[in-house]
Design a protein around this nucleic acid. Structure first.
Length: 424
DNA sequence: TCTGGGGTCCTAGGACCC
DNA sequence: TCTGGGGTCCTAGGACCC
């Protein structure tokens, strides 16, 4: 059986989302910033043309932003998540077999469409998504996922392709591989790119000429899989159902540096509650919780400290109350006075399905009661918005909160004005 | 002054067991 | 003095992705 994949990738996704609701920004440079308005994480084509790099800190390009009238937005993940859902729903009308690969990318199984005019079909997909959601996308079509990635990159880059490139013949595939720099290949990061270039491997085509043994020796079985994929042998299947996560992490840099235990504790408790919520969403419980704290490692003045502590819970849980309790214990064990803290985080691992939790005979926690309470809290959160109901440790003043001074409204989701309630 | 956050997979090496 | 061999599990670290 011949395989055929399309990779649909939203162009400059976050920047495009902002533009959908502010069409006056079309044709103008737009950037979206990371949490705390720290660095650039999305750029419109006009912003790229100004030389603004991905990941560049805002303060380094302040002049450019001001002088060239670059429109900067704080990130608004609720908006982007909702726009992503709309794009994916639209795509699923074209084939039921899709894999949502990331917030802005989707693989489509086009195996049944080989006899169709693939160029016309891909273009129809592209135009429909744009019409329905306002988001511009590019499509690459090829016999393997890695080749679909190659096709997608070229579809974006080439004026002639204009957002759609179909690679089905050996001739076109070879031309595409020759036109793709090795560092632009999916699965080749900076380390491997340097390593390969030193050995005179500069394009994706050069890479396909290597021997399987050599690649295995230097790049593990992952490299071999990529080699086969680029040679047209499909090794990566469409994963329509996302497997449950094996680890869940919530961490943030604080809006300002902190040297006060209570404030770090509030932030950390909030991250623990976020982990609990993510666990409940995928109907899992976790048995290991890790808390870590960091000072600002960019600062040359402040003395540096990194602490982390993992605690094994007697019984796996997804309750806010329990995870906050153990997060507090872990934090107390690693917190040292006399440092300026910039970031903390909570990670939960050893994750099991909710209905397969091993119980402990000496367990003193009323799990039924916790589950009921969490159900109520989740219900309130869904109706009235995040942060309206919380465990008291999470704090009220929140001096540690992120900065996001340039955030767009949540155009697509409801906001609420209900009084905040605290559960003790 | 200001520098993101959240994941995956693979391998090597040590501990431990029979 | 001689000092096995194979298997599993765990962890740390390194690579990658968006």
């Amino acid at each position: 059986m011949t395989t055929l994949f399309a990779l649909c990738d939203c162009n400059n996704f976050y920047a495009s989302c902002e533009r959908v609701f502010k069409p006056a920004l079309n044709g103008k440079p737009v950037v979206v910033l990371s949490n705390n308005d720290g660095c650039v994480i999305a750029r419109s084509n006009e912003a790229k043309a100004l030389g603004i790099q991905m990941g560049e800190p805002l303060f380094k390009i302040r002049n450019l932003v001001d002088n060239r009238h670059v429109h900067a937005f704080s990130s608004n993940y609720v908006l982007y998540g909702d726009m992503s859902d709309r794009v994916m729903q639209c795509l699923s009308r074209f084939t039921p077999n899709i894999e949502i690969y990331s917030i802005d990318e989707c693989f489509l199984d086009l195996g049944d469409f080989y006899s169709k005019d693939l160029n016309a079909y891909a273009r129809e997909i592209k135009e429909t998504v744009h019409q329905w959601t306002g988001i511009p996308v590019s499509l690459g079509v090829a016999p393997t996922k890695a080749l679909a990635k190659v096709a997608n990159k070229l579809a974006k880059k080439s004026k002639k392709a204009n957002g759609v490139l179909v690679l089905t013949t050996p001739y076109h595939i070879q031309k595409a591989l020759e036109a793709t720099n090795i560092e632009d290949v999916w699965g080749i990061g900076g380390q491997y790119a340097n390593f390969l270039k030193k050995r005179n491997i500069h394009t994706a085509y050069d890479f396909t000429q290597l021997s399987e043994n050599w690649v295995r020796q230097h790049m593990t079985v992952v490299g071999v899989r990529l080699l086969k994929e680029l040679r047209g042998e499909s090794c990566l299947e469409l994963e329509e159902v996302a497997p449950p996560k094996k680890g869940i992490c919530t961490s943030r840099s604080f809006g300002k540096k902190l040297n006060n235990f209570e404030e770090v504790q509030e932030a950390t408790a909030t991250y623990a509650a976020k982990c609990a919520k993510k666990l409940r969403k995928q109907k899992s419980c976790a048995r290991l919780i890790t808390v870590f704290v960091n000072t600002n490692w960019f600062s040359e003045r402040d003395s540096q400290y990194h602490g982390s502590k993992t605690i094994c819970l007697p019984v796996a849980t997804n309750s806010d109350i329990e995870l906050i309790h153990y997060a507090n214990i872990a934090l107390k064990a690693i917190y040292r006075d006399g440092y300026w803290y910039k970031k903390s985080g909570v990670m939960v691992t050893d994750i099991v399905p909710e209905n397969q939790v091993q119980l402990d005979l000496l367990d003193t926690v009323d799990r039924g009661k916790h589950a009921k309470l969490m159900e109520v809290i989740d219900g309130l959160t869904d109706r009235f918005g995040r942060g309206k109901v919380s465990v008291a440790t999470q704090g009220v003043d929140k001096a540690w909160l992120l900065r996001s001074d340039m955030k767009s409204p949540c155009y697509t989701t409801r906001l609420s004005e209900i009084q905040t309630v605290y559960v003790r």
